[in-house]
Design a protein around this nucleic acid. Structure first.
Lengths: 339, 339
DNA sequence: CTGAAAGCGCTTACAG
DNA sequence: CTGAAAGCGCTTACAG
């Protein structure tokens, strides 16, 4: 490191010198994997404290120890939903002595190679667009992988963790709630993406929406493909102005639902009298908009807990001895004025 | 790494064998710091491609090369403001071949030791509560440090980057806007923090608010210390119900302003006729609440750009040869229905 | 122009 | 019980 020029980095050698023991002893004290005479151990620990020594994580990782870094891949890290999730994950990971590195999913070929340079003990995939082949490759390489099940991962094999966040159940709850209120013409509003990463039918929110509408025998339509909020609003307006009726709207997230509500206002449709609207994620915005927005709530705290617990179990496990892990979480539909 | 058991990691040695050159040559091709005969270079590059080789970042970092990791320390990573900022920073950093590791500021002593293990080429500090002594220690150690100037950093010396995000100017704009509308009794609503990290007077938003009110000779008061939104609302209600008048509210962020608006509704104060409200950060919520919320806008894109540009300059610079860098950014008050 | 060698800071099998 | 030694995967000064 360039900085080693200005900083007399304190290394194991310094501790050994200060404590009057061999460097080997220092290592064994740190790793606790061999008996060390009590007085030596005490002197080493004192020296570590005095000199504020921390073993070089790079060197340890090179020797096969853990890097204590976990990568989180998301396709949109800017939303409040991911913000809260990452905040929780960070908090729990820190307790386990882990750092969370964040990364938006990238379409380019090089991306998986870059994350593949053995820097990370574990990888959390919260992106619905990260190629399945890459996921498989990562799992095969032996790195601990936890997947947030927001799409179909049936084809993935090997040892990994799977968190079912209840999306399918949640989208079902939303469709059912609209159905119960007599809504028969539902519109799904997909997310805004400036990098063109919209939902496919293997996305559980969109796919689940279509399936559920089908099962109930009601109309379903989709607005997708917007690069900006403005574009999305226009697309929604175009859809609402068309001949085909809309009496229920589900947003892929709360913002999408909000834009749906805005669209209704523009064309003179009254929420909730004429159109019912439900969002997803139950972010804070739901309580502050007008009418207040109903939304499907997923507990980020519980997801975060499940993610970290599973990750620690995978990282700690004997390689190859590990069975796939799976956790199911629950969702709740929060009803507010908009339905 | 434990995974090396299951994965035949491709190393420099494999490339050397595949290309029929010495390992040294492989390194020189990768680093481009010595002439290598054209045909050898070509064979090495082909082998790298074929075997999908990526040099082990740990080993390179150990030898003094960069780790290509930057740490971002924030005190609240869950808000939309930080979400957008981090999203932008991540995007720009990725172009420079850097990863962003995220971390909430921690009060415990061990925190700075942990980040101090030479894992990061650079550290971005976006927390208003990270101890100054620790910042100084990091800078002295030679690591590249960029500070988001959300409080007073006068006492910090050495070589680092400073991004003035225009907070002082922004809070001034907000106070002035209220003053111009005849408001003389202003209330500042501080953030919610479940870890007890509220603003001090060295925080530029709060400090700037107090200073500006003082300069204009008008009343100022503060609501702070809430652990949850509910608690904050209660504190606001208590304040509004007291004998001392409030006719203008500024939130430390948009959510705080929104809670202020909610408080007004509860006690029957009409926004904006009786009380004007201004938020901070101009998040999306401002356009979807009712009345729509005026807010001080800071461009996260510009901040992100400045942060990464400065960081790359610091990381690339000769150690010790670097003068402090400083960038000033601008803010804009976006007026909506709430004033 | 190019290779063998030293060494970054560690861990741990190996040999006392 | 404990130390000297090998080696993780690299970079680069050193010596041809």
């Amino acid at each position: 490191m360039a900085r080693s020029k200005t900083l007399k980095t304190v290394t194991r050698k310094d501790i050994a010198a200060a404590a009057g023991v061999s460097e080997t002893i220092v290592s064994y004290v740190i790793n606790g994997n061999r008996y060390v005479r009590e007085d030596k151990r005490a002197r080493v620990q004192q020296a570590i404290k005095d000199l504020k020594y921390r073993p070089n994580a790079m060197a340890r990782a090179l020797k096969g120890k853990r890097s204590h870094h976990i990568l989180f891949i998301a396709d949109d890290i800017t939303g409040e939903y991911f913000g809260r999730l990452i905040g929780e994950i960070d908090r729990l990971a820190y307790k386990e002595d882990y750092f969370i590195t964040l990364c938006s999913d990238r379409p380019d070929e090089d991306f998986v190679n870059r994350i593949y340079s053995r820097f990370f003990d574990g990888i959390i995939i919260g992106s619905a667009t990260f190629p399945l082949a890459n996921i498989q490759r990562l799992i095969d390489s032996g790195v601990a992988v936890v997947l947030l099940e927001i799409r179909d991962y049936q084809s993935i094999t090997g040892s990994f963790g799977l968190i079912n966040t209840g999306l399918l159940k949640g989208i079902g709850q939303a469709v059912d709630a609209l159905y119960e209120r007599g809504r028969r013409h539902l519109l799904f509003i997909d997310r805004v993406s400036d990098s063109g990463q919209w939902s496919g039918v293997d996305d559980w929110r969109l796919g689940g929406f279509l399936d559920r509408c089908n099962a109930l025998g009601i109309d379903s339509s989709i607005v997708s493909g917007a690069y900006s909020e403005e574009e999305l609003l226009e697309a929604v307006l175009a859809r609402l102005a068309s001949n085909e009726r809309v009496d229920g709207i589900i947003g892929r997230n709360d913002l999408c639902a909000l834009i749906g509500m805005q669209g209704c206002k523009h064309v003179g449709l009254i929420v909730p009298q004429e159109v019912s609207v439900i969002g997803f994620d139950d972010t804070r915005i739901c309580r502050y908009c007008s009418p207040t927005l109903s939304s499907v709530a997923i507990s980020q705290k519980r997801i975060a807990y499940a993610v970290i617990e599973m990750m620690m179990s995978l990282i700690g496990a004997e390689k190859g001895k590990q069975k796939p892990l799976k956790t199911y979480l629950d969702t709740a539909l929060v009803i507010r004025e908009s339905v």
